[in-house]
Amino acid sequence: MNPKTTIERAKEHFGKIIEEQLNRVEALKNSETRENWTDYKSLKPIVIGVIGGDGIGPYISRETRRVLEFLLRDAVESGKIRFKEISGLTIERRVEVGQTLPDAVLAEVKNCHVLLKGPTTTPTAKDGSWPNLESANVALRRELDLFANVRPVKVPEQGIDWVFFRENTEGAYILGSRGVNVSDDLAVDFKVATTQGSERIIRLAFDYAHRNEINRLTVVTKANILKATDGKFLGVADYVAARYPAVKWDSWFVDIFAAKLLDPKRRREFRVVVLPNLYGDIVTDEAAELQGGVGTAGSANIGKRYAMFEAIHGSAPRMVEEGRAEFANPSSLLRASVLLLRHIGFVAEAEKLETVLDFCSREKSKRKLVPSGRSDGATCTEFADFVMKTIPKI
Rank of each mutant, 00 (worst) to 15 (best):
L144R: 10
D189E: 08
E134F: 08
V105Q: 14
L140I: 11
E157I: 01
L133N: 12
G118D: 12
A139Q: 12
H113C: 15
K110N: 12
G159D: 05
R178H: 13
A172F: 03
E108T: 02
E199A: 15
D127G: 09
N111M: 06
W162M: 04
T120K: 05
V138A: 15
N149G: 14
E170R: 00
V138K: 08
L106P: 05
L146W: 12
V150K: 10
N111W: 06
V153S: 12
R151Q: 13
D207P: 00
D145S: 11
Y173A: 10
P156N: 01
L146M: 15
K126H: 09
S177F: 09
F165V: 04
I160P: 08
F206N: 03
G197T: 09
V182E: 03
A104P: 04
I160D: 01
A172R: 01
V155D: 02
V105A: 11
I174M: 07
R141L: 13
T195G: 07
V180P: 00
P156I: 01
D184G: 15
D207S: 06
V114A: 07
G128S: 15
V155C: 05
T169I: 03
A193P: 12
V114S: 03
T195A: 12
D207F: 00
E134W: 10
A172N: 01
I160K: 04
L144N: 05
E157D: 06
L106V: 05
V153A: 11
V155I: 10
V105R: 09
V150H: 11
N181M: 10
L144M: 11
N137H: 14
L115P: 13
F190M: 11
V188L: 15
G176W: 05
V109K: 08
V114G: 10
K126E: 14
C112A: 08
R200C: 05
P156H: 00
A125N: 05
T121P: 03
L106A: 13
Q158L: 06
P156T: 04
W130M: 01
D145W: 04
P123K: 06
K117H: 03
R166N: 02
I201Y: 05
N181F: 10
